[in-house]
Write a protein that binds this DNA or RNA. Sequence first.
DNA 1: CTCCTTAATAGTCATGTTGACTATAAATGC
DNA 2: GCATTTATAGTCAACATGACTATTAAGGAG
Lengths: 276, 276
Amino acid sequence: MARQGPRRHPGASVAGADGAAGDREPGAGPSRREKEEAPGYDPRAFPPFAVTVDLAVFTVREQRLQVLLVQRGEDPHRGDWALPGGFVLPDESAGSAARRELAEETGLSARTVHHLHLEQLRTYSEPDRDPRMRVVSVAYTALLPDLPEPRGGGDAAKASWTPYVSLPSLAFDHALILGDAYDRVGAKLEYTCLATSFCPDLFTLGELQQVYETIWGVELDRPNFRRKVLATPGFVEAVEGPPRRTGGRGKPAALYRAGTAAALHPPLLRPEGRPS
Amino acid sequence: MARQGPRRHPGASVAGADGAAGDREPGAGPSRREKEEAPGYDPRAFPPFAVTVDLAVFTVREQRLQVLLVQRGEDPHRGDWALPGGFVLPDESAGSAARRELAEETGLSARTVHHLHLEQLRTYSEPDRDPRMRVVSVAYTALLPDLPEPRGGGDAAKASWTPYVSLPSLAFDHALILGDAYDRVGAKLEYTCLATSFCPDLFTLGELQQVYETIWGVELDRPNFRRKVLATPGFVEAVEGPPRRTGGRGKPAALYRAGTAAALHPPLLRPEGRPS
DNA sequence: CTCCTTAATAGTCATGTTGACTATAAATGC
DNA sequence: GCATTTATAGTCAACATGACTATTAAGGAG
């Protein structure tokens, strides 16, 4: 792992620009710091990094878990599919960049994007993950209900929902990122309430159950699922005047909306598989 | 959140250097890209970011949860306490940088550090988190057993274990990072086996229980805790010839070592509090 | 309109896990 | 020896879960 021998990195003289304690140097060794040029920081003296965000955006559509992908128009990997994302701008946080990019890619209103669940997944920083230069990418995961018009306007030339089970090969390490995101989403369904993020404002318990079944790839017992969800305070709340959903063939189902609880106690564990 | 209006960032002409699809621009707007200067990437054209790692290193010492802190020798925040950490070097990943820095700070052998549990926590990227320049920090969490000589040699001038309950004010956003790390560790005790990371090679179930009690700040029923741990395959494994621990006053306890399982099914839930 | 199918909802029962407790065993320190 | 301390064994009720069965309320076929 620590493939790095003692070596002074550029900008060591201004070490401490962040969490780094100023009196620390990468290489240790007998010769500690002798002098310090305290003032006059030169950003260029640091190893040059680009910082991007990548988004693993999931939805449940047509009974399948689907992912938002865009097609690259530039080398490298021109023409390959990739996760939506982009550069973090000089005065925004990675989270802001992720929301901004998501709005652009999906064509959702900034207000809608502002309210949806967007969670930081993990940061990918392998030195060779981009062939041209050092790029560190902060990955985010977003969960959307099935949208009327899934592929957005904005400036995303080619974007489309793709079933997770039939992914094309992806640019860079995006397959790795997407795999991590999938594992995380599956695991979070167990002990959080965020399955409701995949549902529209009003939904039936059957629809909520389908979210679990689709993502976990298992079948759940309907009465037991229902009992569990209703027994968890704040998971869902029944809608007032019993309006019932039309369209289907069987008995109409009661409608619910997402509750205020975030965690599930005790959790709703998957039948057999281990969480990631 | 998206405090950023339409604006072209430097280096837009080489957008797509990473997860970014090349045909995307930060600012949308009617005027899409007209021409592309494909080859000849200039790293300097990107917004300059420095990338660091920060480490939240926990141990259980003297019945208390303690954190490894270092004292800054440079402005800003000179003299303040901070998390150990440092810059990511040009050809190492953030994870490698974290291990390297941890070895330096604690004086542990590279081999020891290589084997311990080091987990990426989250990345902190608020634009103003460092007053001088844009610094994005990838935070890691490490869990150590009570070490013989806790404060390391290396080049960490002033490093020391500090009880989590009596933290000084910390530099930058390190109090935020540490709070997130604490929440994460507490939550992970519930559904993973990593409490054993706080224990030495051989330990008693009482010691393992103290880890939970110390971090969660609750008292657990001893027989119930024992029953749960032993019922979870792979959590701990009994040591062969029943050697028993001396020194204490009561009946000697059997010794165990960490098992191979990573997850706890079903989880060992905290008495009342919610997970983070 | 009636029967059949489909889906939602209600309820039952055995099993397994948990929390609260009691009991016994094996060491130390007067 | 005896109280104290800690480890370990075991009990029992409450609760949660998995596997079912039963009932209700719609749509569709004839």
